[in-house]
Design a protein around this nucleic acid. Structure first.
Length: 585
RNA sequence: GACUCUAUGGUGUAGUGGCUAACAUACUGGACUGUCGAUCCAGAGAUCGCGGGUUCAAAUCCCGCUAGAGUCGCCA
């Protein structure tokens, strides 16, 4: 045994005991005749004391210690004369009798402290050192708690955790697959799963009734702060359920997690919003409802006044920012620049200031009378002192831009508090979305999503209007999870494939095993999946999911610590029957 | 595929055409017996990401490249 206690557990009650501790040297404070050493492990920090008068040799030995040395000490627990109220072990210290250096350390490239001096790049390269820091470790502990409480809740609810394979076959729909060459089947490739979707449906056919898995998923697409090439889903599926059953059970799971991980009681039912309303009022299928500022469509009100921009626009939408009438020209210009950035793509921004004296000042005074502006203000429920911001253009694009503007205003006004959590379900997603480029429908969720039974007739007449039994859970504008009730009848599934432009042969080749399985008594079933990384980063108040992943990849999908991906040698390529031909860039 | 931003001692920053490139921290040596972000003194440490150009003069301006961060496209 290297130790009898951890560095976080000794208290006044241990005084007089002989203990052995092991850990890392956090800091050495040399006082001349005395040396204080902070000894650190995952559990905390304990102060060691060396005194020249008591043991000069040992004190000389302690004088040689450097940052991050790994040492073991035998010592007596003593009460401190000067107590440190800032740390849990601050009332005691260890009078060291023997010390052994288990390992020395080079000076770390950045300081292992809460406020490290290291930049992001360097911390990623030395991630194993970064993980020694409290802040990073706490994120990992939080992640552990979320995973643990997820298992506890789902186990209580009768779910079985089942592992599904990582080496599977490529499918054409959805994201780009990561592929793995097969040595034993030359010229053929496995794909890594984008999710365990098909397997969890097969488990329902197998009668498992309630399945879950905390599963690694892989998508070969460009990355973002909230997107990694490999990520973790809490993947769930249930038999003999309708949408309502799924929503209730997983709303329960989220409340359980808030209760036991964040110590927050969410008693109210999560609001539900149709996809159509989410788009209409927030311009997004993942609205941040921590604050209001809903869209108001004012096309009718502003047309026919010779303002050509509004007259020619398909859509004119407004939001009302409370108490912002005092915005200066500079601030309004900033907002205009914000919406005109190529990523947002609005042509311009129209504002109406609702002045304190009841008059209006706008950038389109030339075209609108005070009465006209008053009508707009009424429609927007604007009061004296408010600022109305208006965007116009093609419907979808403008809604999207207005959504960004709304979020920007929410941030500026401090309405997006990380400690406030506003969950909701977005329901009634469309089953299909039309793709102009390829001139065909794509499944908005995936091809196994069951249409809303009220809309089945529309499948033949107007597929674009068919609603799906699909749902997303959204918290604070983050899509945390989503799912659907699945098709469990071969006939309907066949029809879906037809509508998606699959020939029967293609459908058979890609999903034949699922179609076959459905011939042997598939139960009605449905489920969903949550993004564990996003959930943890939301709980931790992080801006990037990287900070809650032990060993994440960078923007371009590289692991800068182990330097992956990397080239492989020719012998390996030969074995696989592969030859490299680099694309000329 | 596109856009924006960034790159200066080990580390984090300052330096917007003209000095010996500044500061903090970490590091090394010294002083110090109650520190706990110890303090004090001294020291070492940078061809300013790479390549080219403009200029009497470039860390600074221009072009290209590389790397990183964020975003759009993409992500059923």
């Amino acid at each position: 045994m290297y130790r009898t206690h951890t560095c976080g557990e000794l208290r006044l009650s241990h005084i007089g005991q002989q203990v052995t501790l092991a850990g890392w040297v956090q800091r050495v404070r040399r006082m001349g005749g005395m040396i204080f050493v902070d000894l650190r492990d995952r559990f905390g920090i304990t102060q060691l004391v060396f005194n020249q008068e008591t043991n000069a040799d040992l004190c000389a030995q302690a004088n040689e210690l450097g940052r991050e040395f790994v040492i073991q000490v035998q010592a007596e627990v003593a009460e401190r004369s000067n107590k440190n109220k800032h740390i849990p072990t601050g009332e005691i210290e260890l009078l060291v009798s023997t010390m052994r250096v288990l390992n020395t350390s080079e000076t770390p490239p950045f300081t292992i402290e809460d406020n490290t001096d290291g930049g992001d790049d360097l911390r990623m390269k030395y991630r194993y050192l970064d993980l020694r820091r409290n802040t990073v470790r706490e994120n990992m502990i939080l992640r552990h708690k979320v995973a643990f409480e997820t298992r506890r809740y789902l186990d209580q609810m009768g779910f079985l955790e089942v592992e599904t394979p990582i080496l599977i076959a490529s499918t054409p729909e959805g994201a780009r697959d990561f592929v793995v060459p097969s040595r034993m089947n030359q010229g053929q490739f496995y794909a890594l799963p984008q999710s365990p979707q098909l397997f969890k449906q097969l488990l329902m056919v197998s009668g498992f009734d309630k399945y879950f898995q905390i599963a690694k998923c892989f998508r070969d697409e460009d990355l973002r702060a909230d997107r990694q090439p490999e990520f973790t889903q809490i993947d769930c599926e249930m038999s003999f359920v309708k949408q309502e059953d799924v929503l209730n059970l997983f709303e329960g799971m989220m409340k359980h997690l808030f209760r036991f991980v964040k110590n927050i009681d969410m008693t109210d039912a999560f609001p539900r919003m149709t996809w159509a309303d989410a788009m209409k009022y927030y311009g997004s299928d993942k609205p941040d409802i921590r604050f209001d500022m809903q869209f108001v469509e004012i096309k009718e009100l502003v047309s026919g006044k010779n303002f050509v921009v509004f007259d020619e626009a398909d859509y004119v939408g407004a939001i009302c920012a409370s108490n912002c009438a005092t915005y200066t020209r500079k601030q309004l210009d900033e907002l205009t620049d914000f919406v005109k950035r190529p990523q947002i793509g609005a042509k311009g921004l129209v504002y109406i200031r609702c002045e304190a004296d009841g008059t209006f000042k706008s950038s389109v005074d030339k075209f609108y009378t005070n009465d006209d502006l008053a009508k707009i203000a009424t429609a927007c429920k604007a009061e004296k002192g408010d600022l109305i911001l208006i965007l116009a253009g093609a419907t979808e694009k403008t809604q999207k831009a207005l959504c960004e503007l709304r979020l920007e205003m929410g941030s500026r006004l401090g309405l997006r508090d990380k400690n406030v959590f506003a969950p909701l379900w977005v329901i009634d997603f469309p089953l299909f979305q039309w793709d102009e480029e390829t001139q065909r429908f794509y499944a908005m969720h995936h091809p196994f999503t069951c249409p809303n039974e009220d809309d089945i007739a529309l499948l033949d007449t107007n597929p674009g209007k068919v609603r799906a039994t699909a749902y997303d859970m959204v918290i604070n504008g983050v899509e945390l999870g989503g799912g659907s009730i699945r098709i469990h009848e071969s006939a309907l599934q066949k029809k879906m494939f037809e509508l998606l432009g699959f020939t029967p042969e293609q459908a058979e080749a890609q999903f034949g095993f699922l179609m076959s399985a459905f011939k042997y008594g598939a139960p009605p079933h449905g489920g969903l999946a949550f993004g564990l990384d996003r959930l943890v980063s939301l709980f931790a108040g992080l801006d990037s999911i990287r900070d809650c992943i032990a060993f994440p990849k960078n923007n371009s999908g590289r692991d800068v610590m182990i330097d992956a991906p990397s080239v492989i040698d020719n012998a390996q390529l030969d074995e696989l029957g592969l030859r490299i031909e680099l694309k000329k860039s």
